[in-house]
Design a protein around this nucleic acid. Structure first.
Length: 534
DNA sequence: ATAGGGTTAG
């Protein structure tokens, strides 16, 4: 009933625009936001395609390398091309392929660590070529990419090399470096960078720079640092943008600091030079929704309607998740229907959310219904969909359905990932099916999917529930060995630091390092220890 | 530069 009143308010606010026009506007906005990187991506893909075409007769890789469908394949295909060029002594051509590969990789936001480290090495090689002159933008993109995949050391050393070779860093480059530090949890370095920027006339920090730094502070829960940054901004005459406000609002909201969040909204409304937008709305309602404050959420939804801010697909997905989590399935489905009336088509996230809600509720019939509907509507299920299905079946003790899910994925281009296998391992472990669990663990490794600390904790729980302490210990030792080889030095300094806590697994999660200690089948996670280690 | 989806344990 309550939703109906929300809906009718929404409908009233919408009568201004025929729905077609509104959808158009949404489309244009999102197209504008990505047009820069999109254009660049298209351009470098086209150039890449041209170069590859000339080589295609010899190499036969162009289709594989440039097709949009084979995103996972094309770096490999390009590397194949590269290999051939090198074998044929065509260095220059090979390197040109690499430059474009590098730019595409960065603009597509490829965050695979290996790819970015490779890109960095290639970039260093490139700079030694006479025909290649790097642009500031390329540096900036590379720095951002390194930051996104937790490689601040590489970012810093690239920046230093660049400096020592006489390349004058631009504002973009400095901001990217700052972001690389901040995202990796190195706040001290990020603050040092902004301090240095203030002393260079062409690189004075702007609202962009401050927004990134504030975003990093809030992701690391260092809310204490935000007020002074805002004071500093106004002292320097830098005006906050909507993005600055939205970043702060979202940060407070995610931390459940509702009073601070509301104060920031008031600041935004009273600022005089910016207006709230769809990001503000979605951050607000998702903050209240996540903590089950349905009334506050609905109040703000209506409030934003009055301000002329219409919901978008993200808004509906948030509402569906919130009502689903609260067990208000009627309202959840009313949102689903309301979307249809407004000509918004549910996407993968919408279906995944609905499927997950019914899986958690143990309503297998509805879960399967929406899974079928998803496929009928032409929305491809992904790893997340399959993961929810598996935990749904496991909760309902329908283990026999799990292999069917795995078999279904074999006919698709979905690449199964660690969380998916974790849910299967949990399903079998919970049911005491140790052999099937072990088989899944092998399958996981066969599929080149790395077990993480959740895998180990899940399996250990299953082992210790059945009194199989020895198997648990064996697994732990194996994992530690594996970690030792990939994080050699880190591991040694950690054991020294933590002395007798054993075994220890180091994980990179949520952009900062965590120490995971698995002790007697129990998982203890110690976070934000990076600073202590240095 | 900002918003929405999955796995363990507590």
């Amino acid at each position: 009933m309550e939703l109906l009143s929300v809906s009718s308010t929404a409908a009233a606010a919408h009568t201004f625009f025929p729905s077609g026009e509104r959808r158009c506007a949404v489309f244009v906005v999102s197209a504008n936001r990505t047009s820069d990187s999109g254009a660049l991506q298209k351009k470098s893909k086209r150039e890449l395609s041209t170069i590859l075409r000339t080589e295609a007769a010899v190499l036969g890789v162009e289709r594989k390398a440039v097709s949009a469908k084979s995103d996972r394949l094309w770096p490999r295909a390009v590397l194949e091309a590269l290999d051939n060029s090198i074998a044929n002594n065509r260095w220059e051509s090979a390197l040109k392929v690499i430059v474009l590969l590098l730019l595409s990789v960065i603009s597509e936001g490829f965050l695979i660590k290996k790819v970015s480290v490779l890109a960095l090495k290639i970039f260093e090689l490139l700079r030694k070529q006479l025909w290649y002159r790097p642009k500031g933008q390329t540096f900036a993109r590379l720095l951002t990419m390194l930051g996104k995949c937790n490689q601040p050391e590489h970012a810093a050393s690239l920046f230093n090399t660049m400096h020592s070779e006489g390349f004058k860093p631009t504002l973009d480059v400095y901001t990217s470096l700052l972001g690389a530090f901040g995202r990796s949890g190195l706040l001290k370095e990020a603050f040092y960078t902004i301090h240095e920027m203030k002393t260079i006339s062409d690189c004075r920090p702007d609202a962009y720079t401050y927004t990134i730094l504030i975003g990093c502070c809030s992701k690391l829960k260092r809310f204490d640092l935000i007020p002074s940054l805002l004071t500093e901004m106004s002292y320097l005459g830098i005006h906050s943008t909507v993005v600055t406000y939205n970043t702060i609002i979202d940060g407070y909201g995610k931390a459940g600091l509702f009073e601070k969040m509301e104060n920031s909204v008031s600041d935004l409304l009273e600022s005089g030079d910016c207006l709230p937008d769809i990001f503000t709305l979605n951050s607000m309602i998702s903050a209240y929704g996540d903590s089950g404050k349905i009334t506050a959420m609905e109040k703000w939804y209506i409030e934003f309607q009055h301000m002329g801010i219409d919901p978008d697909l993200t808004t509906f997905n948030i509402l569906i998740r919130t009502y689903g989590k609260a067990g208000m399935y009627d309202k959840m489905m009313s949102v689903f229907r309301f979307m249809k009336k407004r000509y918004f088509s549910p996407n993968t996230i919408t279906f995944n959310t609905v499927i997950e809600c019914f899986a958690k509720a143990g309503d297998i019939e509805k879960m399967e219904y929406y899974f079928r509907l998803m496929k009928i509507r032409g929305i491809k299920p992904n790893c997340i969909t399959y993961c929810s299905l598996v935990s749904g079946y496991s909760r309902a003790c329908l283990l026999e359905k799990v292999p069917l899910i795995i078999r279904q994925t074999e006919n698709t281009d979905v690449v199964l990932d660690t969380p998916f296998f974790n849910s299967v391992i949990y399903a079998y472990g919970q049911a005491g099916e140790i052999e099937l669990m072990k088989e899944t663990f092998s399958l996981m490794k066969e599929k080149k999917c790395k077990p993480d600390y959740i895998t180990v904790a899940t399996m250990n729980k299953a082992y210790s529930d059945l009194g199989m302490e020895r198997d648990a210990q064996e697994l732990e030792l194996k994992m530690v060995e594996q970690k030792k080889s990939s994080y050699g030095n880190f591991y040694i300094s950690l054991t020294k630091y933590k002395r007798r806590l054993f075994p220890i697994i180091l994980e990179s999660r949520e952009n900062y390092w965590s120490l995971v200690v698995i002790f007697c089948g129990k998982t203890v996670r110690l976070t934000s220890i990076k600073e202590n280690l240095q």
